[in-house]
Amino acid sequence: MAKAFVSSILTANDLREGWSVFLTRDGRWSRDWADLRVAASAEEGAELSALGAAEEAARRVVGAYLVEIDAEGRAKLRRERIRAEGPTHRADLRRADALSEAA
């Protein structure tokens, strides 16, 4: 049985600046985890992946991939939460919108 699709957003790193960025609903790459375009089905997931590949080819970003999110809209994996919110060991390094301790 195929694995059920989990709602996902698209992330990558900005090619020039390197920062992790997230694709927003209006098609911009943002450093903030806010107003993100969400793929809710396998088809939408494939579409979003293709968009990521196109953005890499256009040399705006590097290393695009889908990140699975939970019902609250947060990344499911700790790795992805830390990536979105910043290192956890110093409060001043957290991104402004970091919701909580990542663990």
Binding site: N13, E17, G18, S20, V62, G63, I82, P87
Partner: peptide
């Protein structure tokens, strides 16, 4: 080879 990685948050 010039020490530049792409890491979790940035280069």
């Amino acid at each position: 080879m010039n020490g530049l990685y792409l890491q979790l948050h940035a280069y």
